[in-house]
Design a protein around this nucleic acid. Sequence first.
RNA 1: GGUCCCAUCUUCUAAUGGUCAGGAAGUCGCUCUUUCAAGGCGAAAAUACGGGUUCGAUUCCCGUUGGGACCGCCA
Length: 470
Amino acid sequence: MTEKPRVRVRFAPSPTGWLHIGGARTALFNWLFAKSQKGDFILRIEDTDKERSKPEFEEDIKTGLTWLGLNWDELYRQSERVEDYRRYLEDLLRQGWLYYCFCTKEELEAERQAMMAQGLAPKYSSRCRNLSKEEVEKKLAQGEPSVLRFKVAETKLTFKDLIRGSITFDTSLIGDIIVARNLDEPLYNFAVTVDDALMRITHVIRGEEHISNTPRQILLAKAMGAEPPQFAHLPLILNPDRSKMSKRFSDTALRDYVKAGYTKDAMVNFLTYLGWHPKEDKDAMTAEEIIKEFDLKRVQKAGAIFSVDKLDWLNAHYLKQMPPDVFMKLAQPFLLENWKLNEAMVRAVRGRVEKLGDLKELVGFYFEMPDYKPELLKWQEMTFEQVVENLEKASVLIADLSEAKFEEKALEDYFFERIGRENRGEMLWPLRVALSGKTASPGPFEILAALGKEESLKRVEKAVSKAKID
RNA sequence: GGUCCCAUCUUCUAAUGGUCAGGAAGUCGCUCUUUCAAGGCGAAAAUACGGGUUCGAUUCCCGUUGGGACCGCCA
């Protein structure tokens, strides 16, 4: 019995845009699988497209993965691996798997159009496949533009997808694919296959849009004498109209969600649930819990619509149970610099906020008393006389209480002992408005506790004078 | 157009031959309540369609319909 090779997976994004939610989910599933199998998670930056690859996008990918907690064990950059690709290119060329093609883009485009017009699948005619050695050398010597093509065998190729089962392609429909512009400029399919072989990747877990690349990569791997990895194609993340997720319907970049104030835990949980589900129903799971249960067999085959409602709920769920000090730390970047939350504020507010980006609006009144209309102080049919009376009563109660007692529960007991069960609203509503200046806010005891005696008193005084003027 | 993939409530999904088809989000109602939330309780809501196979199909097979992805000298 041979020992099973160590599981090695990779996330292979191209740095041509901000890390996409779909990419983040692919990375996450790779990471979960690696962790659950005690294997390696490799980050491979696929920057062979020199035109479109940008350092800031690579930075964004790393920042995003780090934010999600997806730590990679090894990092590679394809632009630094041209030696390897060149070696393989030369080998395959020598062995006759590859050949030079001199067809121009215009010729190819015309060919493609003609085939499409006839209702055929566009496929290269293999015209340059049988050029004699002398012809090729002559053209090369003359500097005629060329590319390298791979001779695609014509067979029925079946591979086993870990999520979808057997998938069969008729490779005679593919045609000889271009694998490199020249010996130093390999293209996607080639670079991927070389890397997966050299990096001993055991499982390729990627988006469904790559299914049709799979037969090409298997054929290439075999030509290289490498054992193809196992494949698992993840369902796509969809727009509400079931097309591939795009900016048309929602933000697609992970960074947008980070900026909006979603937490890492909510995002990880949400992304996982987009296509995967634990055996027993659980509303929320931490990454550690997911790893314990993760299994590719339980990955959904159908695409999943990205619905932000569930994310919002999950985020609120995590925020609600977050320890105050953790909450403060996460919240600070979303507030003005001189706004410092205290524990009472956090306790009052963390159950009322969906995402940290909304926090500023919610907690502003603690730091800068908003202006409000005196009318707002009236509870139901109250008159201003009654408002003044109640506020003055409250003011005395507050003044009589020692600073040490400014704790939510203690305040509540203290007040309720003194104001009776009925008509609480007549004091509590004006009090709350006096303290917050808002139609909707945390309760008066929560605010009292957060503000402390002095500031509370000041605000109540101010309200009294407001009510008296009217 | 060709190839491939897919199909359970509005959404994410559970149930792989026998369940009143379950959970969660959302929605609605009730409750709690000084406001807004949160919380508690409850309701409405699905196996796309047609054939098989079987004592019995959400589940297995075939077809139809519908949706999607891919068809670059991008990845």
